[in-house]
Design a protein around this nucleic acid. Structure first.
Length: 768
DNA sequence: CAGTGAGCGAGCTTCCGCTTGACTT
């Protein structure tokens, strides 16, 4: 008997559904979109109602071929792609690509993969929704027009191969603007006062709600406290509660995996993908916080068994994010009673996180008691405040607590027993200078959070977008070392106030996103000429229009026409009238020659320049160092760059020079390069000839020892000593020497044999 | 591998959103 064909987007989903549907159905996957705008050129006819030219994606040729053959034999074809705009379009493209007859084609949808949901869907087939399809075409065409018209403007006006787009350019803008906020941030300081009292052998830690602006004020406060008495003025206890966070979406999973496990967003998605393929979790690209009824029921049982019925609380969550399409469930374990899975370290950790978050989302509130005590000072009007918190009922906190991006204030805990009117024994009071914190730089995950808030990008594109802006060189993910900063500390002990200057490290960063010079230049250029595209609300606004198209109120080509006319005019105007953008920034004048010094982007990246290109004397150029940027380099730092290369003297009648190159600082001597050992304190600005010679000789020695053996038969074959031990260099091929073979005894024939064997060896593949 | 920074011109680059493998070092 011929079987009906069901087509879904993901192969893992296909497997599960086939199980639920049983005999009469064969379930296959389209692997996402099968057709797209043709890769070459615009593929949108702007003079003919924006008629798109679609082509079957090259890597989908085989898929389409197979599906087409199966569809030809099937009595009915069920298009079960996702229930959102893209899913509807995939179904339509399948109709077109497989040349399906719509009379025996049925469109079905479900947003959870459970037996009942699927059987219910089969009972309610419909036709393709062309409103949604057209909304998707508008989305697709708009993105193509924006991307493929803006990018070439950048090639002409900034640098070849750059790119711009509705999503990536706004992502870069967020990072650039945050960096400028930080650069312009003035860290004002104030004195934070903390007093510690003794209550029956236990410490009572309190803080002054107000901070003192100056050291004088803080000092006089401490002196006033020296002979004061301290009395509990008021104690208040209030009940409070905490509620669990919603189950994971792609974005919240990426955030928590970043905070709790230190994963990058791409890593999170890779690990989640493998859990999904193993059937351990539901689909990982979702914007929905909904759990299936089945999942909530199992969660309830699991919680009751493990923690007691009073810890369970069935909850449904509403999505808060703009533009959510909710085609799937939230990310959850497929089996909620399984709290651990096999797999590598990262898989088990991510699974555990997902399990805990899901279970906690169905648990009772935590009930707390918060106590606030005011402590009066006999000599001043200010009062110290002590805060304590006691958990009365753990509820969901037994399982999981969501992390915050900024480290929290120290956890408040139980206060020692105190009552109004108690007179306290003061142990000490500290007034410590504290600086305001600059706005935080984005991590990959906090950028995703921001994009989601703005409704920009989709679960399937968050990770790729972040990798694109890095690949284009707009943004780098880096660690930065902090700087030393002095602060004042006043201590009151035994009635005496002492003051001291101390040092702290500030501004250290780990895995944060920084804009590059090119990122800033491109951003400023786009913002100046295409401000509407870079507007944080641009996506949200066009989404509203896509919705109108979906509802049938607006024709998609009309919407595009209204957008394209002014946009294209801007493109033309910018191409004609705008200057090349080089991010030029004047740094000042050369102290000796008075020539202008500027920083800008050159052909090979950021650089500083002394003198004019138009003037008769050729200007001097120097590349910026990796950690420098046009926006922040000072005149002094720029002048330093011109101090290299330095001539140190001569050795063996040849000049020895020091410089910094692409691979760090080096010494050059008779055509050879020797790297400086920065870790051992070598510095090209101060390096002396003696040390340079030492380095040159050391390099010569290594080179001499590098060659173990050469062969008369073939000069291209050598036995060498490399970084990882001895190996055979066979032309361009590097061959390992088997264990137990003494490298120096190898003959030419043996080398040839080993090289042959090595070639035949199947390339070892990385274990997952 | 440790440079370069002028200009010409051919031919290339580029978007966002759906999905996974099939390739190496």
């Amino acid at each position: 008997m011929a079987k009906d064909l069901v087509i879904v987007e993901s192969p893992a989903k296909a497997k599960t559904i086939e199980k639920y549907l049983g005999d009469g159905f064969i379930v296959k996957s389209s692997y996402g979109h099968v057709r797209d705008l043709a890769k070459k050129g615009l593929a949108v006819d702007v003079d003919n109602d924006f008629e798109p030219t679609y082509a079957i994606s090259p890597e989908k040729k085989d898929v389409v071929k197979e599906l087409k053959a199966l569809a030809a034999k099937a009595p009915s074809v069920w298009l079960a792609t996702d229930e959102d705009r893209e899913g509807e379009a995939i179904s339509w493209h399948l109709v077109e690509a497989l040349e399906l007859d719509e009379s025996r084609t049925k469109r079905i949808t479900f947003h959870e993969i459970t037996k009942s949901a699927i059987q219910e869907a089969i009972k309610n087939p419909r036709q393709i929704d062309y409103g949604l399809v057209n909304a998707q075409q508008a989305r697709r065409v708009l993105d193509r027009l924006v991307g493929f018209e803006l990018s070439p403007v950048l090639w002409k006006k900034v640098k070849p191969s750059l790119s711009a787009g509705r999503v990536q350019s706004v992502s870069v803008r967020l990072i650039v603007e945050r960096e400028r906020d930080i650069l312009n941030f003035e860290a004002k300081s104030s004195f934070r006062v903390v007093a510690v009292f003794n209550v029956g052998g236990k410490e009572l830690r309190t803080e002054l709600p107000k901070r003192f602006k100056t050291e004088e004020e803080a000092n006089s406060f401490l002196n006033d406290c020296a002979n004061a008495s301290f009395t509990i003025d008021n104690v208040e206890t209030k009940p409070a509660k905490r509620s669990p966070a919603a189950p994971f979406t792609t974005s919240t999973l990426q955030q928590e995996a970043s905070r709790k496990l230190g994963f990058g967003v791409a890593q999170t998605m890779r690990v989640a993908q493998s859990l999904y393929e193993g059937g351990k979790i539901t689909y990982m690209r979702t914007d929905s916080v909904t759990l299936s009824q089945l999942a909530m029921d199992t969660a309830k049982q699991t919680i009751a068994t493990r923690y007691g019925e009073d810890h369970s609380q069935t909850r449904t969550y509403q999505t808060k994010s703009k533009g959510a399409q909710e085609a799937h469930e939230a990310i959850r374990p497929t089996l909620l009673d399984v709290d651990k899975v096999d797999g590598d370290h990262n898989e088990t950790r991510l699974y555990e996180l997902i399990w805990k978050r899901t279970i906690a989302s169905q648990m009772a509130d935590a009930r707390l008691e918060r106590t606030t005590a005011q402590i009066a000072i006999s000599t001043r009007d200010e009062q110290f405040v002590a805060k304590g918190e006691v958990i009365k009922f753990e509820g969901f906190l037994k399982v999981y607590l969501e992390s915050k991006d900024d480290e929290e204030e120290e956890d408040s805990s139980l206060l020692p027993p105190i009552a109004q009117g108690d007179v306290l024994e003061m142990k000490g009071i500290d007034a410590i200078e504290r600086f305001d914190r600059n706005p935080p730089r984005y991590t990959e995950a906090s950028l995703v959070k921001k994009l989601e808030e703005l409704g920009i990008g989709r679960p399937s594109t968050y990770a790729p977008t972040i990798s694109t802006v890095q690949k284009r060189g707009y943004v780098v993910k880096e660690d930065r070392e902090g700087k030393q900063r002095a602060y004042r500390e006043l201590l009151l002990r035994n009635g005496i106030v002492s003051a001291e200057t101390k040092n702290e490290v500030t501004g250290a960063e780990r895995s944060k996103l920084f804009p590059t010079d090119i990122g800033m230049v491109v951003n400023d250029f786009l913002l100046e000429h295409f401000g509407n595209i870079l507007d944080y609300n641009f996506t949200a606004n066009v989404e509203k229009e896509f919705d109108q198209i979906a509802e049938g109120g607006v024709e998609w080509n009309e919407m595009i026409r209204r957008f394209y006319k002014p946009f294209h005019a801007d493109v033309e105007k910018t191409l004609e009238t705008s200057e090349r953008a080089s991010g030029e920034r004047a740094l000042g004048e050369h102290p000796e020659t008075g020539k202008k010094i500027i920083a800008r982007i050159g052909r090979y990246g950021p650089m500083v320049q002394v003198g004019d290109t138009e003037s008769e004397e050729k200007p001097q150029f120097a590349s910026l160092r990796k950690e420098q940027s046009i926006a922040s380099i000072t005149l002094e730092e720029a002048l330093d760059l011109f101090k290299l290369p330095r001539t140190l003297g001569t050795y063996e009648d040849e000049e020895v020079t020091a410089n910094v190159g692409r691979f760090g600082p080096y010494v050059r001597h008779s055509g050879k390069f020797v790297s400086l050992k920065v870790k051992e304190g070598d510095d090209p600005m101060t390096l002396e000839l003696e040390r340079a010679i030492e380095l040159i000789e050391a390099k010569r020695k290594v080179d001499r020892e590098k060659l173990i053996k050469e062969f008369e038969e073939n000069k291209d074959v050598q036995v060498l000593n490399g970084r990882y031990g001895p190996y055979i260099k066979f032309g361009k091929q590097n061959v390992r020497i088997p264990k137990g073979t003494e490298p120096a005894t190898l003959t030419y024939d043996q080398c040839v044999e080993l090289a042959e064997e090595d070639k035949k060896k199947p390339k070892r593949r990385k274990k997952k």
